[in-house]
Design a binder for these strands. Structure first.
Lengths: 158, 158
DNA sequence: GGAACCTTCACCCGAAAGTATGAAAATTGC
DNA sequence: GCAATTTTCATACTTTCGGGTGAAGGTTCC
């Protein structure tokens, strides 16, 4: 209904997520810079005090191993949002699901009926129907099972 | 009717996951061993050919950074699926789905309606309804969306 | 301040799905 | 061959979904 008539030229609503993305990138860059600086300082320490190579190597390896694990965990956790609806998801078409729609979609994926979703979110059944219809339109499907398959392919729901 | 009476003796199917777990552990151990071996070989290389310390350090750091990221990703992915207590909830009842039922279940997971499934398998709509109902009973659910969620947890459908 | 969107809710109607019950062929296992 | 199952199909009924249309209030951005 809201989507069948407009061509949807641009969606300028996700500048927030972009900003956060850049912040994240910069943060990571700084972290790496710190690690390298630390490495260099260790190197100086090594050259001035003639530490054993083994110790130096081991420390470096351990340091970067920890850094790698930390980074890996960060990235890994980003993939599975939980509880809260998280940010809007980009879609093949330049349509994205709103937070409420993602919330409803997740409850659908848990096998709840529209009525159960309505009860859980303290909303009217008609409201849930509106949300589901918007979801179907945006995903280009017409049933909830199809929506589930598509959402899984798009990694919106696990 | 067909499901409420039988004990269904043979279900020797979940020692597989344990074996896979052990395999995973062993694989991880071997990976670490390889990393250490590689490190040592680099060390020998360094000592015999007088490579620059910087290069050696950099390689070590990079290697362990990659290893750490890999490990972090693995752990991060493993941690998320069990937000719910789903440890021993593997089998609802010791009932198995028949081949036809699995076939129908897969088509359901692709988002097809009962009528579409009937057309695809050259069967009657009522037949598909019977199959779906059997599936629901065996999986202990009431709706196809719930069946999908359960089937995914049981790894019947991807 | 208006455009575009999100969120909420309403009513109606037809289609799809689910529930209950039954039963006849086909199959598989012993 | 016989029993147990699976597979097939049926009727009848209720519930849930999907699609259409409309609308009011809120936000975000330009």
């Amino acid at each position: 209904m809201l989507l069948t008539k407009k061509p949807q030229v641009k969606t300028t609503r996700n500048s927030k997520s972009k900003k956060e993305f850049y912040k994240y990138i910069i943060f990571m860059g700084l972290l790496l810079a710190c690690a390298i600086a630390l490495l260099k300082s260790f190197e100086y320490y090594y050259f001035s005090y003639k530490l054993r190579t083994d110790v130096y190597i081991g420390l470096t390896a351990f340091l970067f191993l920890c850094l790698g694990i930390f980074l890996g965990l960060k990235v890994g956790k980003k993939k599975n949002p939980d509880e809260k609806p998280s940010l809007p998801v980009k879609l093949p078409l330049n349509l994205e699901l709103s937070t409420r729609e993602i919330e409803v979609l997740k409850l659908i994926s848990e096998g709840l009926t529209n009525q159960e979703i309505a009860d859980k979110l303290y909303l009217s059944l008609n409201t849930i129907k509106s949300h589901t219809n918007s979801i179907y339109i945006k995903l280009g499907v017409n049933r909830r099972t199809q929506a589930l398959e598509k959402a899984r392919k798009l990694q919106i729901v696990p």
